[in-house]
Amino acid sequence: MTEMISITLRVNGSERTAAVEPRRSLVDFLRHDLGLVGTHVGCEHGVCGACTVMLDGRTVRSCLLFAAQADGSEVTTIEGIGTDEALHPLQVAFQQHHALQCGFCTPGMILAALELLRDNADPSDEEIRVGLSGNLCMCTGYVNIVRAVRAAARDGNVR
């Protein structure tokens, strides 16, 4: 049996301790060990961005990290962004502007957009497109995603 590694991290504000196999990816850990299935898997090779989460405030591709590498870190997933009762302004904008269809890319897209707006509160369309270019959406052609992010930026409530 492989030796397990013990890790402690904060996920969406709560402390979690677990023993993981060294090869357990962060996304599999979040999804299958913690049951946070909002983070999706689209490629497992770092291109699609479906697995995007925040690690200590910056977006990462959780398919390219081992869970063990997140030891001691603060992780935020879509489940920590807003709730049904209190949607995050980006979630509101995505819904208003039909910025999702199947929704599979959406959690990763919201986290990427959050980082984008934290870095640049008033991006141009061009900057939005470049800022989101690490996340693939197969459904929307990105048009309404750009609109939603622009609208959220205009409203100015994104933190």
């Binding site: 299935v37 909002g38 983070t39 999706h40 879509i78 489940e79 962004i81 807003g82 709730t83 049904d84 949607l87 979630q91 995505f94 819904q95 208003q96 039909h98 999702l100 929704g103 599979f104 959406t106 959690p107 919201i110």
Partner: peptide, 13 residues
Amino acid sequence: ERAEDRTLLTTGG
């Protein structure tokens, strides 16, 4: 707005 969206936006569906 779509009825499907709130779940997809908050818990990922």
